[in-house]
């Protein structure tokens, strides 16, 4: 038995959404490859919704489990809701607080996901400059 909650081990052994999306809407990477954990998220965004989110992690069990839990939480949600997922939300999904010293895992995966969203927005902003915002009006406004 480790200091981890069983949910962490469950995500470690049977992780969700592992891999990379071909031709993704956005890619985000965080961490330091030379001496620490590394996380990479790829996302497919359609009509401001996270259609798919896939991740890869090199790192400790906490980082792998946090990536798995986060990917599961954001799939199918609106971009705004997905971006609001917090460290606490991930910890709750993992059965409670991570062991002392493992909190960095939450920052690592959130950072990678946020960078993937940022990458999407940057590409999208470029496209809008060229194509305009037609079709982007939100109904009711």
């Amino acid at each position: 038995m480790s200091n981890y909650k069983p949910q962490v081990v469950e995500h470690l052994v049977r992780p969700y959404n592992v891999g990379e999306i071909g031709s993704p809407s956005g890619i985000g990477e965080s961490g330091e490859a030379t001496c620490g954990d590394v996380a990479r998220f790829t996302v497919r965004i359609s009509k401001a919704y996270v259609e798919d989110a896939r991740y890869k992690v090199y790192g400790c069990a906490a980082s792998i489990a946090a990536g798995s839990a986060l990917s599961k939480m954001v799939r199918g949600r609106s971009l705004i809701e997905a971006a609001k997922v917090s460290k606490l939300d991930i910890e709750n999904a993992l059965g409670g607080p991570l062991p002392v010293g493992k909190e960095h895992a939450l920052v690592l995966v959130l950072d990678a996901l946020h960078k993937a969203f940022e990458d999407y927005w940057n590409k999208e902003a470029g496209a809008r400059l060229v194509e305009g915002y037609r079709g982007y009006e939100v109904s009711g406004e």
Binding site: V9, E32, A61, G101
Partner: peptide, 22 residues
């Protein structure tokens, strides 16, 4: 931890430093 979940205890040659991503 993966091996532990599969039913095998082995030792780790390194450890995450506390309160650090490193």
């Amino acid at each position: 931890l993966f091996l532990d979940a599969l039913g095998y205890a082995v030792g780790s040659g390194s450890a995450c430093a506390s309160n650090s991503a490193n």
